[in-house]
Every structure is written in structure tokens, then in C-alpha cells.
């Protein structure tokens, strides 16, 4: 798979190439989200949340490492988890655009986390039945972690949504801002469809109603209003990102870029 923009030639990809892209998407979403959470460490609203957010970050980075290693093997060009994480540029990253959005305040971080946790819950649970046993094994581990993540993020969503007038206002605003990134979660492209036809990945269209119902249930408890869905131009999973990813990667990749070839 050559490093080019926006998946041209997806129909011409071999099955391995398509699978590699699919796995990279999962990897990059976990990696970018894990990196964002790591920014909070030492700055959270309470010491206990420093630990809680660090715990989520560790889980996500762990998932990323497993997915990246597998993607590197599928690619067959000798790239390991670090080569993929530290030496690809932003257009080659395939994370959901939602994951790269900045932390904002704690409420903003919680909304972003909750939306992705609910998505990962569906996707990982479905991947446990993938015909790809490696993917199924990673998903089995990841789904257990995600259940805890969802408990954490939805718990906070409700406390903040149904907390004080200030907290309610903040999370409603965060929700209104981040909602525009949600259509990407369940809009399949050719890669998703190929993987789904081959029994390797779930059909996103089938997962969406469950995600939506779970979202509605939490919003009700949080006394929040579900925003109206709008069309979106961001196709993070196709390498078309927002401006934020470049800065995130600049920071993350700095040492490897400055000292090429060094072992750490």
C-alpha cells in the first residue's frame, strides 16, 4: 500500500491491502485518542481523574500497539509499530476525525470519549466474531477495556449533563460542536464493505441503530439534547483530516524525526 492521499485505487487493492487499511484505521483511532488523553495527565480536575484518564490512555495505546503490529505484518514492508506511529505523515493516518479533536475542557474530552467509546463497543464486540482470528483476539481484549471506558465516560456525561447549570451548558456546547464528526462513524466506504462481505468486519449500517439507542439513553439521563446531524467533509479514515492532526503528530513524532535512525 503506497502512502498516498484519500485511498485512491481502493477497488484495486488486494485483500491484504484492504485488510491492512482497515486495521490501520482501528489502530490510528486508538493511538490518536490515547495521545489526546495523555495530554491531561497532571492537569485533571481531581487526582483521581488523573489516574482514570491515564488508565484509559494506557488501554488505548495498548490497543494501538497490537493493531499497528498486525497492520505492519499485513503490509509486509518491515514496518513495526513505531515506524508506523512515528514516521507516517498526517495524510497517511486513518483515524476518525473525531479522535483528533482537541481536548478542550473536561466536558469536551468526556463527550469526545463517550461518542468513541460507544462506537468502539459496537465495533469491537462485532469483531470478536471476525473470520480473522488475530483481529478477533485483539478485539476480545479491547472490548473488555472499552466496557470500562464506556462506564467511565457515560458516568461523567450524566454527572456533568445533570449536574449544575454551568456543567450542563458546557457539555451541551461540547456535544453541539463534536456531533458533526459522528456521521463518519457509521458511513461505510469500499474498504468497510469489502471487509464486511468477507466476514472480517461488521456492517456499519447494522451497528448504527444500537449505537444510536445507547447514545439516546445516556443523553436522556444526562438531560442533554441530541444535536441535528449535518453533512460532513472530514474523512479521517480516508486520510482527510482537520488541522489538528498535524500539530498532534508534530509533537508526538518530534524525537524520531530529529534523530533519524536512533534507537530509544
Amino acid at each position: 500500500m503506497s502512502a498516498t492521499l484519500a485511498m485512491p485505487g481502493a477497488p484495486d487493492m488486494t485483500p491484504e491491502e484492504a485488510r491492512c487499511v482497515y486495521v490501520l484505521r482501528l489502530a490510528d483511532t486508538s493511538l490518536v485518542l490515547g495521545q489526546r488523553l495523555a495530554e491531561w495527565i497532571g492537569h485533571a480536575p481531581a487526582l483521581e481523574e488523573d489516574l482514570g484518564l491515564a488508565n484509559l490512555s494506557l488501554d488505548l495505546i495498548g490497543q494501538a500497539r497490537l493493531f499497528l503490529t498486525y497492520a505492519g505484518e499485513l503490509e509486509g514492508r518491515g514496518r513495526d509499530e513505531d515506524a508506523l506511529a512515528f514516521l507516517r505523515d498526517a495524510p497517511e493516518f486513518l483515524n476518525l476525525a473525531l479522535a483528533e479533536q482537541p481536548n478542550g475542557d473536561f466536558g469536551h474530552t468526556i463527550v469526545r470519549q463517550w461518542l468513541i467509546d460507544a462506537w468502539q463497543l459496537e465495533v469491537y464486540a462485532a469483531l470478536e466474531h471476525s473470520a480473522d482470528t488475530r483481529l478477533a483476539a485483539i478485539a476480545a481484549k479491547a472490548v473488555r477495556e472499552t466496557r470500562y471506558h464506556y462506564r467511565f465516560s457515560s458516568g461523567w456525561l450524566v454527572r456533568l449533563g445533570d449536574g449544575t447549570p454551568e456543567s450542563h451548558g458546557r457539555v451541551q456546547r461540547a456535544l453541539d460542536e463534536l456531533w458533526r464528526f459522528t456521521p463518519e462513524l457509521f458511513t461505510p466506504d469500499e474498504i468497510d464493505e469489502r471487509m464486511s462481505r468477507a466476514g472480517l468486519a461488521p456492517s456499519l449500517a447494522e451497528l448504527e441503530p444500537r449505537w444510536s439507542a445507547r447514545i439516546d439513553e445516556a443523553l436522556r439521563a444526562a438531560t442533554l439534547v441530541r444535536p441535528v446531524t449535518q453533512p460532513y467533509p472530514w474523512h479521517g479514515k480516508r486520510g482527510i483530516h482537520t488541522e489538528h492532526l498535524g500539530h498532534l503528530l508534530g509533537e508526538m513524532q518530534h524525537l524520531q524525526r530529529t534523530y533519524p535512525g536512533a534507537r530509544w
Binding site: A46, E48, L51, G52, N55, R151, F152, G155, R159
Partner: peptide, 17 residues
């Protein structure tokens, strides 16, 4: 011991700490 606002959070904090 840990501090928490409610029992559910207390379980999470105890687990994390």
C-alpha cells in the same frame, strides 16, 4: 481510602488507585 462524589465513582477510583 479514596475520595469520590458517589458510590459508582468510588468503585472506579478504588479500582484505578
Amino acid at each position: 481510602s479514596i475520595h469520590a462524589a458517589d458510590a459508582r465513582m468510588a468503585i472506579e477510583h478504588a479500582r484505578d488507585v
